[in-house]
């Protein structure tokens, strides 16, 4: 009969686990995310200026910049490069619009094996879906608040 003499309680075990589980090296990951994320934003700004110089008005230039960044991220995902950059960049590649493109393209590639309808089509938004749903919900809430504030001002 095995005695559970040394068996820790769940709380104790949780503490033991914490002790042996290494933390993320934030001193390395945060600067890397800042630099690479910042670089993507700089590229965006350069694109914006270039599109403006090419004669696009402000709104169209902004839209063209987003389209270009999304296209590049999708292409890099397809070329199997994006995830290797993201491994180092973390939130630096996740937060900009490039992260959104990657989160749509990567499941599309992955689940193509299950067919264009039930695979690619159904699973394309498996990661981005919640962001879209709650993004829209948040914008509705924001719109309602905005409307009511407008009534009193």
């Amino acid at each position: 009969m095995t005695q559970n003499s040394g068996q820790p309680s769940p709380q104790e075990y949780s503490k033991m686990t914490e002790k042996y589980s290494k933390n993320t090296k934030s001193y390395k990951t945060i600067p890397k995310a800042f630099l690479i994320g910042g670089l993507i934003c700089v590229i965006g700004q350069v694109l914006l200026n270039l599109y403006a110089m090419a004669g696009f008005d402000e709104e169209s230039a902004g839209m063209m910049t987003s389209i270009t960044l999304v296209f590049c991220a999708a292409l890099l995902t397809g070329l199997k490069v994006y995830d290797n950059i993201a491994k180092h960049a973390g939130a630096g590649t996740l937060v900009p619009i490039t992260g959104f493109a990657n989160s749509v393209v990567s499941p599309a590639l992955e689940f193509k094996a299950e067919g264009f309808v039930l695979g690619l089509g159904a699973k394309m938004f498996i990661i981005a879906g919640p962001v879209i749903v709650y993004g829209i919900v948040a914008s509705v809430v924001y719109g309602v608040i905005y409307y009511f504030i407008g009534l009193f001002l």
Partner: peptide, 10 residues
């Protein structure tokens, strides 16, 4: 998905 740009924890 394999090409998703996520980070693994230590």
């Amino acid at each position: 998905p394999l090409e998703y740009g996520g980070q693994r924890t230590p």
